Amino acid sequence: MIVVMKVGTPEVEINRTCEELSTWGLSPEKIVGKHKVVLGLVGETAELDTNRIEEISPWIESVLRVERPFKRASRQYRQNEASEIVVSTPNGDVYFGEHHPLVITAGPCSVENEEMIVEVAQRVKAAGAHFLRGGAYKPRTSPYAFQGHGESALSLLATAREASGLGIITEVMDTPDIEKIAEVADILQVGARNMQNFSLLKQIGKQNKPVLLKRGMAASIDDWLMAAEYILAAGNPNVILCERGIRTFDREYTRNTLDLSAIPVLRKLTHLPIMVDPSHGTGWSDYVPSMSKAAISSGADALMIEVHPNPKKALSDGPQSLTPEQFDQLIPELAKIAEVMGRSWQRQTVLA
């Protein structure tokens, strides 16, 4: 349930209304929009009479029920205003959101060694990327596959951050690792296999770094948004949704089926920013450029693209990785499409 306050409502009246609603056993959350303040009511609201709430203050414009089960993630919860997420990097603030320039994240699946991760960071930064992706901890289908270098890889990501000025996105797989990963990462990633690890979602929602939530391999959109709700309900409002392909019946030609139809659906349902990962979504580097362009055309706010200096020798996900040279060629093409879609391409400034 949301309470919409009238334009120009005094702050003292907003606070008084919140205090009154708190005595009803509710937890009002103040959402400041461009023109109005909205109070999101968390608690047992099913039996509440909206007319009774409207009588609390003459400054209340309307009281609305949020129809979706994902309350905080619902676009209705923010009066149809898109949220923006600001991430501070060595090269300045980067904004994720519907009304901001396209954001590019690039890098290898796994951090392999210092030379490789620094080289990739500098190359993708020069091409126009804003964030470096790289796995320190890697969930793998086989227990015998490379699982990442773990904690030692975090220091390599920190070195790459210093050398390039890029923000860092890396995955959290277990709750004990959250704090140490948050010391290095600018955005914490929850991978597809952990999308419904509710214990992890609750704990990661208690810290203040933005969270990239990847869609589970067999997750419906409702499943995905309810997973985001766990993070939001724990207190962290900064969640970015990442479509990375789902499992369907055809696995001969692509690793997954990239669900680009999810982008306009999400835009209608939620205020949260949307990223697309065409590398995992297809599994083959040949298809990454076309799916990247299609994602921008569909309204994506950000892209995550795997880049490796020598994909044939990559310790994980080599077949879906672009070379730095291919990434260099792709970025100007993406910039043109972004501009056509009104996303005004924004390059990071180079560190002195």
Rank of each mutant, 00 (worst) to 15 (best):
A233S: 13
L225R: 10
M226C: 08
R193T: 12
L225Y: 08
L188C: 12
A234N: 02
L201G: 04
K180H: 11
E229K: 07
E229G: 01
G235S: 03
V190S: 01
D186H: 10
A185L: 07
I187A: 08
A228H: 03
K202E: 15
K214W: 01
E179P: 00
D223L: 03
S199K: 15
L200G: 04
A234V: 00
A185E: 06
R193F: 06
L212K: 12
Q203E: 15
A182I: 09
I221D: 10
L213G: 07
E183M: 13
Q203P: 00
L212C: 12
A218C: 08
G216R: 07
I181T: 12
I221L: 13
V211C: 01
L225V: 05
W224P: 00
A234R: 04
F198D: 14
K209I: 09
V184A: 08
V184Y: 12
K180N: 11
A228W: 02
D222E: 14
M226P: 00
A227R: 01
Q203L: 15
A192Q: 13
N194G: 05
K209L: 09
D186F: 01
L225M: 11
K180G: 07
V190H: 01
T175Y: 08
D186E: 03
M195L: 12
G191Q: 13
Y230Q: 07
P176N: 08
I178C: 02
I204F: 02
K209E: 03
L213D: 02
D177K: 11
I204V: 15
M217F: 13
I181V: 15
S199F: 14
E183W: 01
G191P: 00
G205K: 12
P176G: 13
M217L: 15
L201I: 01
P210W: 10
K202Y: 14
I178V: 02
G205N: 09
P176V: 08
D223K: 09
M217T: 10
Q207T: 15
K214M: 03
L200E: 12
A234I: 05
